[in-house]
Design a protein around this nucleic acid. Structure first.
Length: 681
DNA sequence: CTTACACGCTTTTTT
DNA sequence: AGCGTGTAAG
């Protein structure tokens, strides 16, 4: 029997329907200053956007406006501070003008440079499969070379690997020589200048030879490419006709120069930022970029966004007073129409645990009052400042996620497993090789280096490098022989080109690594779950190269334990370093450890410039709050680092009029409960 | 000569 | 918790 077949129409998603042309009423959706910036004509423009003044909104509408006017989305370059920010803007632009926005080229400076270098980098000696070194990888490589050059003979105190990496990084980001950096900022190591210079050359040579690229190199090499290879330079600069840069106050000299070069053919650059929120000087950023933009791009138009849509007047009053003390800034005056709201509160706690208990208790109260948990954030200067609070929150079953600080990808077991993936992708990667080899029983630093040297020797033109390496591994006899043969087997298995997805490769290597993991860590069950998490992340990729690059450039910031704690409840409290809270906002914000010595950190006491940066950091923290702001400071805390007893609130409140703050002191409840949670444990 | 392991010291912020 | 250093064991 024949059945009648009825057609059922599958609709195209709404976004793909023909988008309206210039249908947005820009004048209605934006205030006059925002509108002026959004509809600015071609040429350079600088948007000074105070905290909460609708900076993202302005950028999103600008993108929409350009596309609406007929600009090809693919010719718009949107440089943001995190890839998340780029995605969010693309999404919001999509809501305005449809799917065309997806073709906007957006990301961080580093991810854009990564993309361009893989595509155009050959002329300057970069193969598309190059490996990105994260900070600890580059430290490891520096350490290796230092040993090889015999520079760790300890006659005089030689800088640690971390310090050396910092020096090299500063050179790259501030466009200065090693001599300028050492004499200027590390004068106590100036006697080692010659050795450091030699080490720096060795480091650069080793990276070049082995197709390794550290974070700074991504930018440095792009700059080299733009100035040395005319073909690539024309192709790149020609494909971006409009450049938008977010968070311009946190760019460094190198990045400013890149923008200058990318925009050379047309000068269509709009940079957006707030000099008062510049908080990345430690990695070479300088708010002078924003001050000097009009010099770099003569004829730039300046727009100022001064209406704050985020915070109440009492919070803004405090913020304005705090930043009043800053030495150098574009003058701007923030105002709001939300006149009423509670005064910010300065809370004195008898100690760190009292502070934690206050925060936890207050959060429970706020939740009773109807404030959702994900509208509350706890901010702090340094990642470890929240350890005690984290324990307190777990005890009370308050779900939270922590942002900033230690990254998933940086944990030892995840690094171990990815090192295996990386040697498959780039057999020249000596840093990963040494990590991989040292995991084998009976192999230490010496044998690992010998093996890596043997790989280079065994290499022959007529065969793939992996094969030569495996032969070397198989020939080893003695204590480590068995382990190395096993390693060769699994690498061959996982390395079959083209037949395996990244996820399958992870799986293969996981099976090999598991016994090593169990041997090494007592808490291996937790770590196993992290590695399974790595597997699910790998499933999203088709190519190993892409997976590894993304892991280095945009590492997921929570370890699995945290994520799970959060997923029990879709509402979760945010704990975050102030740096990671940049650009975000909450109904209620707590700032921990607002005590002189922690905030500003005692490290910054010596330098006026660093103190200024801490002040701006405090300003950023305060301006995250919409309604409620609690600043807490424990007293009588002994600081091991400096030997000081910390008791005084941050100096940034010294000049603030008392009428702008409520002050509370915590008192223990009398009677019933004589014990604190500490003894109860 | 190497590897493995124990102990004390120091710890900012991140692409 | 991780790094560098010193020491015992292979």
């Amino acid at each position: 029997m024949d059945r009648e077949i009825k057609p059922y129409i599958l609709k195209r998603p709404a976004e793909e329907a023909t988008p309206p042309k210039l249908s947005l009423d820009y004048a209605k959706e934006l205030n006059p200053q925002q509108l002026a910036a959004v509809t600015a004509v071609d040429g350079p423009s600088l948007v000074i956007a105070g905290a909460g003044s609708g900076k993202t909104r302005t950028l999103v509408y600008r993108v929409a406006y350009l596309i609406d006017k007929g600009v090809d989305p693919a010719s718009i370059l949107l440089l943001t501070f995190t890839r998340k920010a780029a995605q969010e803007m693309q999404h919001r632009a999509g809501l305005l003008i449809g799917a065309r926005s997806e073709r906007v080229f957006g990301g961080t400076f580093h991810s854009v440079a990564n993309w361009l270098l893989r595509r155009y980098g050959r002329p300057i000696g970069l193969e598309p499969g190059f490996t990105i070194l994260d900070r600890s990888d580059s430290e490891d490589l520096i350490n290796l070379l230092r040993a090889q050059l015999g520079l760790n003979e300890k006659e005089k105190r030689f800088p640690r690997k971390g310090t050396i990496a910092e020096m090299f990084s500063k050179c790259a980001n501030t466009l200065q020589s090693i001599e300028e950096i050492v004499l200027g900022e590390f004068a106590h190591f100036s006697e080692h200048l010659e050795a450091l210079d030699k080490l720096k050359r060795a480091y650069e040579g080793a990276k070049r030879q082995r197709q390794l690229v550290d974070y700074d190199d991504l930018l440095v090499k792009l700059r080299v490419l733009l100035s040395q290879d005319e073909g690539a330079s024309r192709a790149i600069a020609g494909s971006f006709r409009y450049i938008l840069v977010d968070e311009y106050q946190d760019t460094n000299r190198l990045q400013a120069d890149l923008i200058r070069k990318l925009a050379a053919p047309h000068d269509n650059v709009m940079v957006v930022g707030d000099d008062s929120q510049s908080i990345y000087a430690f990695r070479g950023a300088t708010f002078r970029n924003i001050m000097e933009f009009p010099t770099l791009f003569p004829g730039a138009t300046i727009y100022k966004l001064e209406e704050n849509y985020r915070s109440t007047q009492p919070i803004l009053n405090l913020a304005n007073e705090v930043i009043q003390g800053a030495a150098e800034k574009y003058s701007k005056h923030l105002f709001t129409r939300k006149l009423d709201g509670p005064l910010p509160v300065l809370v004195q706690a008898a100690g760190e645990n009292a502070q934690s208990r206050f925060v936890a208790q207050k959060i429970l109260e706020l939740r009773e009052e109807g404030v959702p948990l994900d509208e509350i954030a706890v901010l702090f200067r340094s990642s470890f400042h929240s350890f005690d609070l984290e324990i307190e929150l777990s005890r009370r079953d308050l779900p939270f996620v922590k942002r900033g600080g230690f990254k998933f990808i940086e944990t030892a077991h995840v690094k171990d497993l990815t090192a295996h993936l990386r040697v498959l992708e780039n057999p020249l990667d000596a840093v990963s090789w040494s990590r991989v080899l040292m995991l084998v029983e009976g192999v230490g630093p010496k044998k690992a280096q010998d093996l890596i040297a043997a790989f280079a020797k065994a290499e022959r033109q007529d065969r793939p490098p992996g094969q030569c390496i495996n032969e070397v591994l198989r020939e080893v006899s003695g204590r480590s022989g068995r382990g190395l043969k096993e390693l060769a087997r699994v690498l061959e298995e996982a390395g079959r080109v083209g037949t395996m997805t990244p996820a399958e490769q992870v799986n293969e290597l996981y099976a090999y690594y598991l016994p090593i993991l169990k041997e090494q860590y007592d808490d291996y069950p937790k770590r196993m779950r992290d590695l399974e998490h790595l597997y699910t992340m790998a499933e999203r990729y088709e190519r190993l190269e892409e997976f590894l690059a993304d892991m280095a450039l945009e590492p997921p910031d929570a370890s699995v334990a945290n994520v799970e704690a959060g997923e029990r409840d879709d509402e979760r409290l945010i704990l975050s370093t102030i740096h990671s809270a940049k650009g975000l906002e909450w109904q209620c914000v707590f700032v921990l450890w607002v005590v002189d010595g922690r905030f500003p950190s005692a490290y910054s006491f010596a330098s006026e410039e660093e103190l200024e940066e801490e002040r701006r950091l405090f300003y950023v923290a305060v301006t995250r709050a919409k309604q409620h702001l609690y600043l807490t400071y424990p007293i009588n805390e002994y600081d091991k680092g400096t030997g000081m007893i910390l008791s005084k609130p941050t100096r940034f409140l010294d000049s603030v009029s008392p009428s702008l703050l409520e002050t509370w002191a915590l008192v223990e409840e009398r009677g019933g409960r004589e014990w604190g949670p500490r003894e109860w444990e």
